[in-house]
Design a binder for these strands. Structure first.
Lengths: 245, 245
DNA sequence: GCCGGGTTTCTACACCATGTCGAAATAGGC
DNA sequence: GCCTATTTCGACATGGTGTAGAAACCCGGC
């Protein structure tokens, strides 16, 4: 005996209730109109606030206000604050995984593919509006809500580990533990977020350290450490810059 | 016109009010006795709880209960939750900075000193009961309370950057940006925390990845990337293991 | 035109955590 | 014994989270 239709989470058929046709339902208190799905408005507002003040520093009232709703109305669409976050975070690895597919489809030596991945990921992290490291700290991180995020994150780790193993087999990379290497390389990318924004203090000159330069540096360091012949590094760098502008 | 003696923060002369002589003051509701300074009991309890559930997941009531006090009594000693944290965190860089002094006093090539620092720091991070990355996310991080933490963190960055610059000048390290290198190396150490605890999933065999092994791997990768002649790595590794067992 | 069902939003509230206030309970000095 | 300083407590104001149930709207049937 269901109390009422609860549009939380995903609907089975993929269609979402909410703003399908005309604007039925009680009008908003502030009289604001809205064309799209309120879910998208909420997500967009939350996205901006999360990146400005962090997840913990953002209140549901604030999210609601920016979405033209009252605080409690947000709960009609999302069970709680973390549910909003989960929706945003689920797409965090999307871009990098798409790039992974492109890289593997394009082929090339394992070292070349690895360099492209690391550089791309580091640049992505520098540009990512959210704080990946804050997400790692959430209490409910183990729960199903973040299942997609974790599955994709693990897939990324395995893909990078496979590239390292390939490179070792090909003879271009030094003999090393692929699992450890992939963990260190990827966590290095993520760690970049911690200091990249504050790097202005250190950088000499205007825009001395931009995302591109930092990403190249991180990739040079990480892949360079694994390359058997480090003289190959400039070629990898150029190739990556050409293929992933 | 001060309302009353407020034992918050540090007292000018270094002595702390509180449990100096006999046990004066109102007795505790649960009748618990206490020998040392209540500040230490609170810090110890908070320390345990923070590492178990994170800072955000720990309530003042819980801290108070484990210290034998009521929730509001904790505020007699600490202005708020972050003040407790600040006291703990202030010592986070202590051990590493002490090690830095020892390394510099002992001397050796820049590469050797650098390797010792990175390995030691990484191991320290693996063993640190707290989550450095959670601390970075705190709203009040810019405030005076964490001034000591930041000052020491910056000192560490500068020291590592100086080692890199020395190594470049000596000709043992490849020509690179010392500032960027120090930022990446240290953030790599910190990033280790993010995956080290969960690494059991990946590790084959019992204790396959312990703090020591991970620290060596991270140092090998970071310093190895900078070494002009990577054949020197095994010697650095052995030397570090001898000097910093 | 009016009624009933479904949808969206609201108001009101219960709950919990934070941090403040003033008072209560002790010890020690005069 | 009284006064003062110290330590702890209980009560509370405030603000955020999430729930319950009603209100306001659209639409289709009669």
């Amino acid at each position: 005996m269901l109390a009422r239709m609860s549009p939380h989470a995903q609907t089975p058929d993929g269609t979402r209730p909410g703003r399908a046709r005309g604007r039925i339902g009680r009008p908003r208190a502030d009289g604001s109109a809205h064309d799209g799905d309120p879910r998208d408005e909420i997500t967009a507002a939350a996205s901006r606030l999360f990146s400005e003040r962090g997840v913990a520093g953002t209140t549901m009232s604030e999210i609601a206000r920016r979405s033209g709703l009252r605080q409690s109305s947000v709960y009609y669409y999302f069970r709680d604050k973390e549910a909003i976050l989960a929706g945003i975070v689920a797409s965090a690895n999307r871009v990098v995984l798409d790039h992974l597919d492109a890289v593997n489809a394009h082929g090339g030596t394992a070292a070349e593919r690895l360099y492209r991945m690391i550089r791309f990921d580091a640049r992505q992290m520098c540009r990512f509006p959210f704080d990946i490291n804050e997400i790692y700290r959430l209490p409910a991180l183990q729960e199903d809500r973040f299942a997609q995020f974790w599955a994709e994150r693990t897939a990324l780790t395995h893909a990078v580990a496979a590239m390292v193993a390939d490179g070792v087999a090909e003879g271009n990379l030094v003999d090393t533990d692929p699992t450890l290497a992939s963990l260190v390389l990827l966590s290095n990318d993520e760690g970049t977020q911690n200091w990249f924004r504050a790097v202005g203090e250190f950088g000499q000159g205007a825009g001395a350290y931009d995302a591109d330069r930092v990403a190249v540096f991180v990739a040079d360091l990480g892949v360079g450490a694994l390359l058997r012949d480090r003289a190959a590094l400039p070629r990898l760098r150029e190739r990556a810059q050409t293929l992933d502008p």
